[in-house]
Design a protein around this nucleic acid. Sequence first.
DNA 1: CGTTAAATATGATAAATATCAGTTAGTGAT
DNA 2: ATCACTAACTGATATTTATCATATTTAACG
Lengths: 228, 228
Amino acid sequence: MDQQCSCEKCELKQLFFENVTENEMMSLCQNRIEKSYSIGEKIITEGNEITQFIYLKSGLVKLYRHTEDGKEQIMTIAKPFDFVSILSVFSDLKYNYSVKALEESVTCNIPIAEVKGLIRKNGRFATSIIEKMSAVSDKVIIEMLEIRRRNLRGRLALILLYFSNVIFKSNSFDLPISRKEIAEYIGMTTENVIRTLTEFRKDGILKIYGKTIEITDKKRLKLISRLG
Amino acid sequence: MDQQCSCEKCELKQLFFENVTENEMMSLCQNRIEKSYSIGEKIITEGNEITQFIYLKSGLVKLYRHTEDGKEQIMTIAKPFDFVSILSVFSDLKYNYSVKALEESVTCNIPIAEVKGLIRKNGRFATSIIEKMSAVSDKVIIEMLEIRRRNLRGRLALILLYFSNVIFKSNSFDLPISRKEIAEYIGMTTENVIRTLTEFRKDGILKIYGKTIEITDKKRLKLISRLG
DNA sequence: CGTTAAATATGATAAATATCAGTTAGTGAT
DNA sequence: ATCACTAACTGATATTTATCATATTTAACG
């Protein structure tokens, strides 16, 4: 079996398919589909049947859901390696959340039945999936609790630091979401997101050029993010 | 092998150990320890090493964590079958949350290594664990999002309905947590929990006798819990 | 290119919520 | 029973946040 599997070269192989045999790898690889999404495109739609196990190869996405009163609520923002849309995928038949690309994104889709079969067959694979899921849920829950404890300034500081330190690893970056979406993410109104950004600007903590943010006083921003 | 395993009669067997062989069952059963906790006793302490896989056989517990400023934040309240302290248990070495008994509770403790081994060996068991974990994380996350969307009256209504409908299945019940703990759970101050309870009483929605709550106008309480 | 819609922005005001200060009731220990 | 301590409660006030109204800028599109 000299055939080459392109997953071998995939940087996510280590994360998800460690301890998978050659044969299993081939099978996964043959059945997988890679999909590209441009900004704003929907990757997962709430209510749709779960048929694929999807993870993010590159890009940035938001996980969100619709509330009864028609508003959107962002659950978390996911980057590759960090979150891979596995939440509730194994316990439900239909998605209870949607996923949309915030940047050009590439996903890898594997039939969910294939993954479930592999979990049954390969214990080490099962272990790795459990560990990953566990870590992801944890991250989301802690993130929510941390956001909740803070006032508006603290919340906004937190998310700006998240973008700066975790996502973009730079003090200067383009906001991947609108002010409205920030509001939906950290539970405040759009007006107050804008107002608080302006406050930060006036306080000399950051500079704003439309979507571009440059954090000029990170020490102070950290301070604001600390307590209530 | 005529020996009787007491887990055979356990009502949780179906949930966790379906598809487990006789031998595996025996091994699990021999290594397990059942522990009883009285009200207020700690079951899990944040920072401690994770050595046991613990699930709730009976009773009621709270999962909570300590914030840097010394306060407590309740993540969720768990009853048997509903949540079993598996969050992050597989990805971390140490607990990042604590668990305390709100009622007389009984847990079943199995060495975590044993469970991990079984996941590796038995694919159907692995599947069942993944499904359960997935559902639990989902529940907690949705619960948090639902709480967050509401104002204080809505939040309190939500938690009262949760106690009434889900936990105690009665319109009259003893609150298993203090006003302060309710506040820590739904993210408001103790004073406002008390005040809002009083408001509900004055509005004829419920009667209060210390810890005992009797919901007299559930329709209205539901209405309050609906929107922001 | 102009037209429309959406996003960003700002101010005034109302409403919600937290904080502070203090009272009362209950609980456990001795 | 008394003391100490905590939980439950109440009111006044300050602060935070949402709402509403409106202007401006930017993006979207035929």
